[in-house]
Structures are given as structure tokens and as C-alpha cells.
Design a protein around this nucleic acid. Sequence first.
DNA 1: CGCGTGGTTGAATCTGATCAATGGTTGTGG
DNA 2: CCACAACCATTGATCAGATTCAACCACGCG
Lengths: 253, 253
Amino acid sequence: MTAIVTTAPLPVADIPAIRRLRALTPLDDAGIEALVAAASETRTVPARRDLISEGMPIVEPVLILDGWAARVRQLVDGRRQILGFILPGDLVGYCGFDGAVAMTTIVGFTPLTVCALPSDTLSPTLRRAYAISGALDEAYLMAQITRLGRLSAYERIADFLLEMLERLSTAGMTHDDGFVMPLTQETLADTLGLTSVHVNRMLQQGRRSGDLEVSRSRVRVCHAEALTRTVGRQPTRVFLPHQPAVSATDIPR
Amino acid sequence: MTAIVTTAPLPVADIPAIRRLRALTPLDDAGIEALVAAASETRTVPARRDLISEGMPIVEPVLILDGWAARVRQLVDGRRQILGFILPGDLVGYCGFDGAVAMTTIVGFTPLTVCALPSDTLSPTLRRAYAISGALDEAYLMAQITRLGRLSAYERIADFLLEMLERLSTAGMTHDDGFVMPLTQETLADTLGLTSVHVNRMLQQGRRSGDLEVSRSRVRVCHAEALTRTVGRQPTRVFLPHQPAVSATDIPR
DNA sequence: CGCGTGGTTGAATCTGATCAATGGTTGTGG
DNA sequence: CCACAACCATTGATCAGATTCAACCACGCG
């Protein structure tokens, strides 16, 4: 799980959560120090235990250091919808008013390592990183809506895996367009609005067409670039890139 | 559209947007004054014109005073997904970091009346109202995901109309569980991940079963309470109610 | 009056769900 | 170290909800 280097006190670049936040926006020393300090005092939550329960007041915002979690909504008749995943470097319970209650239950699919989220008053760059992270949260929800509303089963799988690839690579958790995905096909089904049987068939189709390599809990997207184009996915973007503005190709109808 | 009373300078309670924000959290005088002042200087955007375009930098946050708008995502092959609606009292472009770009296009289905959003530094209560509004935005996105992922076509329609009822009643824009909905069935279809043909059939089913009264642009939900229960909808809640905590009836599996 | 937009209807089709059974993997306890 | 139990992946057959295609109608507007 963690790297086996034990010489130095653990280089900052090896902590995926910090790596992610630094990738969102450059952090000043105060911000990095605060994160490193926070990450030294961790808490572990066993898999399948609620990290936050829907309707309960939000106590303390935390930063995910390791593990996969999800926002889950359970319907009265047993149907379940997974709203989105929460990965290392993601913030949980960071919202700006008193008396807030959790809008969804959050549960881990693996044991979770979390730490207290450093206050955003410690560094303006940290504050900015949190704000960007929040905007990305919203962007992921919107991407999920588009997937469920207008993509075919196969497109949903592909688009979802590409999103995970994008997110995990920000935290440095991918290798050669592959990553560890500790989810069952049942979980994937509850995410993508499908049945596990159909997820299974679509994964096979992805294998046969050479788009995917899927084993136990490993996924590799074979030609990420090409697949991105074929399913019409556009990468998530919430702030201005440093490149000159992208030319809008959209034709107003 | 607007009330025909012209005696007084227009009572605050008659401005739906302000009514909504006050319903979210009590506002102090500074906050109300700022809103009233802002609402006196309006701008109008014609229907079908972009209020904000995806990928463009966000210039100035605005408050919707009148009209219906939506966040829209257009796929390359012409498919369209409506992510959610923006109604009077909703905030647009209020996000906490520099260099942010719009994550989606926002277009009006009616002419929109908007005004500049008063700065959240003017009043702590205003700031709180904005934060709650933002949390509600997120809650609506999550509700939309659940609708698309796990509800049947009929349930989607019912749940959606109940949400609109809930939101519009906060702004005082409903009468006897009815409201004006300036959307075509095609638009509804692009919202709910269906085709317009199927939306039509589901609306008819709603009429036949006595759940709905739908005409031109008017909708009435006949037995809102009952319908809420039958489709298993739970009302949106992002902060602690003043009542004692609701007992959790959820059975952990 | 004619056209365009949006609503309504029917028939055929298809994507994905459901039901049911089999087989493989992992983890645990004897 | 093996045996068993759970859980998960896989496969086939059938079913159903929603789409597609194609009309037709009603209304508002230039």
C-alpha cells in the first residue's frame, strides 16, 4: 500500500492526499506544513463503517489519506444509489455554515485512513485548494448526472473509469493508465444505474474490444486517449488553464 | 408575471428571491437592505440566451429574481442533459476562488430577471444564506443522480415535480400545490433521462391516476403528501431542524 | 392561411432488467 | 492443510420498460 522507502521521514510527494492538493494549486510552506502535521495524526475507519451518516450533524471536516469511500443513498425499498466516490486527497464535511447536517451517508469500501482537515485560515493557498476541491466535487456530481441521464451502459462504464483514472492520477495513484479499484461489480452497478449482471457484460465487452483490462481489483484503460474520444468524454475543468483560452467549438443552436 | 400592486414601493415579501433567502435562514437588516437595493437594479436576459457559458471565466455572481433557467450539458453527438434548474432566489456564479470557469452553460427557458449578488461581507446572515443555498444546490444535484440512477420513469417525473413544488413554495411561487412550469416535454425529457414521447405517456398516467393536473404550462400535484410517500421521496434537508432529531429508521445491512 | 412548434398516439424494436444456475476465489476454522 | 461458507463473477433464457419511427393534431403567429 505505502511505499517501502523508510529512509527519510516520508517525503511529502509520497502522500497521495497532499500530492493531489498540490496538483490543484501551488501551496505555500504554511499550507504544506499544516498538511504534513495533520497527516501525522491519523485515524482509521474500518471498511463498511459509516464515516458520516445522513442527517447527522457534521462535526469535524476530515481529509482522506487512504482508501476508497462513497456517498451512498439508500431508498426505502432497498434500492441503492452511489452518488460519487471519495478518494485520497478529497475533503469530507468541509462546508461553510453552522448546524449543517450530512446530506448523504459516506461509507468506505476499504479501511479508511483520515486526518483532521487543517483550518483554511492557516494559508490562503490552502483555502484556495479547498475551494477548488469543492468545485471539483460539484463537477463530478454533474458528470455523474450526464452519465446516468444520457450515456449508454458501455459509455457509462468507460466514462466512469476514465474519470477515476483522471482523479487518481492527480494523486499519483496510477501506473500506466491502470489503478487499483476495490469495488465489486455490484457496487459499480449501483453507481452507474445498472445491474451487476449488465456491468459484467459491459466489462467483458470492454475486454473483448481491447479497451479494458480488468482483473480482481485492478483496472487498466488500454487506449485512454482513444477511448476518451470515442465516448465523447471531456476532461473536468474548473479553473482557467495556463494555456491560452480554448477555442469554443460549440455551435449555438 | 409581476404583481399589479403599485401602491407601495413593493413590499419585500413580494420579491420571491428575497422571500426564498429569508426562508433559508433569518436575515438581519443589513442583509435585507442589501438585497432590496440590489433587486432595484435589474438586468434582463432574453430566453434561450446563455446566462453563463461553459468554460468561460465567471465574472460576477448574480441572483435570479425571476424566470426559469437550467444548467445544461451538451454532448458532441447532440444529446443533451439538463443537470438542474435554477429558480428565483437561486445564486449563480457564487464560488470561492479566483480564475474559476463555469462548469456548465446556464440558459433561461423564460426571460430572466437578475441582479448583482450583494457581497457576502455585508452581513453574516447573508453569508449563511448563501452557504445554505450552495448546500441545497449540491443536494439537488444528488437528488437528480438518485432519480436518474434508480427511479422508474414515473417515479422520476413525480419526484421531480415534488422537488419543484418544494423549491418554488420556499419562494412563495406556488398556489394549492400548483405552479407554473415553463418547460416543454422535450425539456423535461432531457432532464429526466427519457424521451419526450415517454414523458408524455407518464404525464398521462399521472393524470389518469389522479396524481397530476398538467396543462399548457401549469402543473398541480394533487395529493402531494400521498405521492411523496408512494414514490419514497424524502424532502431536502441540509441543516438541523428546530424539532428534535428525526429517528433513523434505516436498518444497517 | 400556412408554417412551425409542441403534444398525442400506435406499432415495432431494443437495451438493459430479471430470474436462475454454475463456478471461482478468499478467508476462516477445525 | 483441508473443508466449508460467503461472496463475487459469469452465463443463458426470458421479460419489460423505454426508445424509435412515423404519423397526426392543435395551437399560436407572421
